[in-house]
Structures are given as C-alpha cells and as structure tokens.
Amino acid sequence: MAGSIGIPQLIFCAIVAALFYRYVLSPPQASGGSGPTSGRRPRATVSQTDIDSVRVMFPQISVAAIRWELEKNGGSVPATTEKILNDGFLPEPPASVTRQTPSPLPPSVNSEPGSLGGTGRSQAPASSSSSSAATTIGHSDLVTRYNLHSRLETHRPGTSAEQLSSSPKKNDKASLFIRGRERRDLMVLEARKKMEGMLRR
C-alpha cells in the first residue's frame, strides 16, 4: 500500500543515498583529476591575488604551501604572513592536496629570470638577528631578487633605459613591460653603484 512508503521514509532514503554518494562514490572521482572548481572543496577558495601578495614577500615559499595555508585559515593574508614570520617556513601540503592545485604561478612570473619568483633561490627565511623594531619581511636584497649579480660588473653608471633600447618607443602592453622591467633593473644597479661609492667614502 501507499501508506507503507510515506514522506519520512522518502527523506530517509534520500539522506542515505546522499551520504552514500558523498562518502563512497566521490573520493575516486575527486582524485581522478577533477579541477579545483569541483564541488567537493570544503575549504575557503583562495584568490590568486592573495597568493601572489604572500609570494612577493616570501619568494622562497612554494605556491602550494601558501595556498594550503590560506585555505586552512580562511584566506587571511596577514595570518599567513604572521605564520611565516614566526615559524620561518610553511608546511608543504599533503600529496592529495598538491594534486588538486593548478599550475603554481602564472608562467610569466615563474619562468622569467628577472621576476620575483625566479627559480634556484633558497633564501634563509626569518633572520633572527634583525633589530627588534625593524620590519622583517622579504629577506632577499633586490640584486638577488631580480637576478642582477651577473650584470653588476658590466653595468656602467649613468646608463638609462633609453640609451640601451635602440628600438623606438612602443606603447603596446608587451613592450611596456619589457621597458618597465629594464628600468627597474637599471634603478637597482644604479642604487647599488651609488651605495658602493658611499661606503668607500
């Protein structure tokens, strides 16, 4: 009879089915290469901007670790920074999480030698000897950060970006970036030369 299957029973069945689906069926699905947008993600979504802003300060810490930490603390950049400053590092996420994370950083940031995320750099985090009141973030100096050691000897003071680039000024985005980066590097080299001069005196 119809009376034997009422609404309570239906709801119960639905709950059982949902739980079954949730815990029995989804794990293989999730590990089977589903992207970060798949519904099964209990943690806070982390914006690339937040990851970038932590990364800029601590280029030595992997994007995966930053993302993991941000997800754990609900996307708080200050809390993440605080943790790095206190501990000197961030724990790497477990392997199951790493698989889910998409490409670490936009390739332009990661691969370019002059950019912040340059590879092959293992700066010691949190220098404990720093003075108590001074701010201690971003421990690499600019020459290291922008990979300019090789250009220190060849750089002649007074060179400006205009003199170096023979091509006429272009205003499209790509050439703006090239000129901008060159100007940035030259400013650092100039400052370094100036400081060397000041120290010699």
């Binding site: 901007t49 800029v56 936009p106 332009s108 940031v109 950019s115 912040l116 940035r184 400013m187």
Partner: peptide, 14 residues
C-alpha cells in the same frame, strides 16, 4: 619605479 608584478594581474604592483 612601479609596475604590475605579472602581466596577467594588473591589480598587484611592485
């Protein structure tokens, strides 16, 4: 000097 850190995010500069 100021400019975007990465070409695909104009909201974060160095």
């Amino acid at each position: 000097y100021a400019g975007p850190i990465s070409e695909d995010n104009f909201m974060l500069w160095e």
